[in-house]
């Protein structure tokens, strides 16, 4: 079963602590070595992106930043045996954020790939 995990959070006022980055790298390596993590990457702020919309038959392209309060921070693609397993990996990922970046708040949404 394949899952896409998207991390969203309000734009940060400061760069993430180096300890957090090291913990994320370590966790990513563990999950990759275990064969569970297929692909992952961080995303630049939406100011670097664009939106293409279809509305009332019209095709529009709007440059970022997007209007949403939360920014998409990163994505990860997992190959796991159950939803519980991707939840466990995501728990670990969110836990290092909680423990190593004081005051940080955010959410990871888990989507199953067809």
């Amino acid at each position: 079963m394949r899952y896409l995990v998207l991390l969203k959070a309000a734009p940060a006022q400061s760069p993430p602590p180096p300890d957090l980055m090291a913990a994320i790298m370590k966790l990513g390596e563990d999950a990759t070595r275990a064969g569970a993590l297929l692909d992952t990457a961080g995303l630049l702020p939406s100011a670097a992106g664009a939106t293409v919309t279809v509305h009332d038959g019209r095709l529009d392209v709007t440059d970022g930043p997007f209007a949403e309060a939360k920014e998409m921070i990163s994505y990860a693609i997992y190959d796991v045996r159950s939803k519980e397993e991707v939840v466990e990996w995501t728990n670990r990922f969110m836990k290092v954020h909680r423990d190593l970046w004081e005051g940080w708040a955010g959410e990871a949404t888990i989507h199953q790939v067809m």
Binding site: A34, R81, S82, V87, E88, W89
Partner: peptide, 8 residues
């Protein structure tokens, strides 16, 4: 959930 942790 226990099984999932176990597999890891």
């Amino acid at each position: 959930a226990v099984e999932a942790v176990w597999r890891i």
